Amino acid sequence: MERISVETLRTWLESGQAVTILDVRPTAAYAAWSIPGSQHLDAYEALKAGQPGGLDQLALPKDRPVVTVCEAGLVSQRAAALLAARGFTAYSLEGGMRAWSLAWNTAPVLPEPGSSRQPEAASTTPEPEQRQVIQIRRTGKGCLSYLISDGAAALVLDPALDPTVYQQQARQCGWQITAVLETHIHADHLSRARALAAACGADLYLPAQRRVSFPFKPIADGQQLTIGRLHLQALHTPGHTPESTCYLLPGPPGRPALLFSGDTLFPEGLGRPDLDADPDEARRRVALLYTSLQRLLSLPDDSLVLAGHSARPLPFDGQPALTTLATVRGWLAPLLASPATFSAQLLSNLPAPPAHYQEIIAANESGEWPTVPPEELEGGANRCAVTL
């Protein structure tokens, strides 16, 4: 039995290498979050007790390696050893799902997937509409960030991964990161915005607020942020947090606008209003969110909604997670029929809060990196959305 790193497995999946991923965690843990395309066998307790848990009878293809997965990478070693004894090339995922929370993949938003146009280096002629966008997905956590460029200068929105990931992606495209931007103060992951801006010598922008204790350039409602030849408009949309802000990137004639909606609006849900808030404050934020959503629904129906999170693990398929505002309107408009209806639906469907969210908020407000490894604070399913 051998162990395999998260980065190696991530590379295998991104390159399309055939591999069987076998998750041996309890059923509830697997249902909460998992690696895209993995198989599941609830063998955790049996393996802990020294029993095979059904692995001795499990039929798996032998023409590809098997990677076993548990929560922290310990019980999965027993599973891999049992499979190796049966003649499989078996590996245990080092660090388990906690470590996998840092895995990532990418998908182009513009140019569109399948288009012959690809992000071009700065030395070539950029596409006529200038906008080029890559969705960078922290698949294990559901965090979505964006690398936005005019073909030369670039901006990173809501970075949730090590700064080197964004620097590498920009370098491959021939882009220079000149700005780093956040939609709000995050509660489910440690912000990498300050570190990325420092590493690139870029400007750091946050929505105007007094929560953070480090220097930044404030963005006010209606303000335009210019990056090269691109102009993003800030739309203050309080509700999930008081400072939550969406950013609108207009399209040229005949092309849709891009709405970077942060944690305010998701394809199938809304940003929860209760984190770090007492009941009275949560109800006040619900009222603010009601007004914010009406503002967003006033935008054109063909606007593409690019949220800050996904409620499901994102596969290595190169397809961006997005929807149109028209699709969102179909399920959201009935909820906005009245403030009372909206409040009742939202507050009655709140999921359990993210683990360690108070420590994460405190770190993001101070700008100080915690002493514990990030995966210990950030692990687990994404719980910033209310699905309605």
Rank of each mutant, 00 (worst) to 15 (best):
T264R: 02
L265G: 01
F266Q: 01
F266Y: 15
F266G: 08
E268D: 15
G269D: 03
L270S: 03
L270I: 13
G271T: 14
G271M: 08
R272W: 00
R272E: 10
R272G: 12
P273T: 09
P273A: 10
P273W: 03
D274F: 02
L275V: 12
D276N: 13
D276M: 11
D276W: 10
A277M: 06
D278Y: 11
D278M: 09
D278I: 08
P279N: 05
D280K: 09
D280F: 09
E281K: 13
E281S: 13
A282Y: 00
R284G: 13
R284T: 09
R285T: 00
R285L: 12
R285V: 07
R285W: 06
V286Q: 08
V286C: 14
A287C: 08
L288H: 10
L289N: 07
L289T: 01
L289I: 07
Y290D: 11
Y290K: 07
Y290V: 06
T291V: 12
T291C: 10
T291S: 14
T291N: 12
S292R: 00
S292H: 04
S292P: 09
S292D: 04
S292Q: 01
S292I: 03
L293E: 04
L293W: 02
Q294A: 09
Q294R: 15
R295Y: 00
R295P: 01
L296T: 03
L296I: 00
L296S: 07
L297G: 00
S298R: 15
S298P: 02
L299A: 04
L299S: 03
P300R: 02
P300Y: 01
D302Q: 15
D302L: 03
S303G: 05
S303E: 07
S303K: 10
V305S: 02
V305E: 07
A307E: 02
A307S: 15
G308R: 07
G308K: 05
G308H: 03
G308S: 06
G308E: 05
H309Q: 12
H309W: 08
H309K: 12
S310C: 15
S310T: 12
A311G: 15
A311Y: 14
A311V: 15
R312P: 13
R312H: 15
P313K: 00
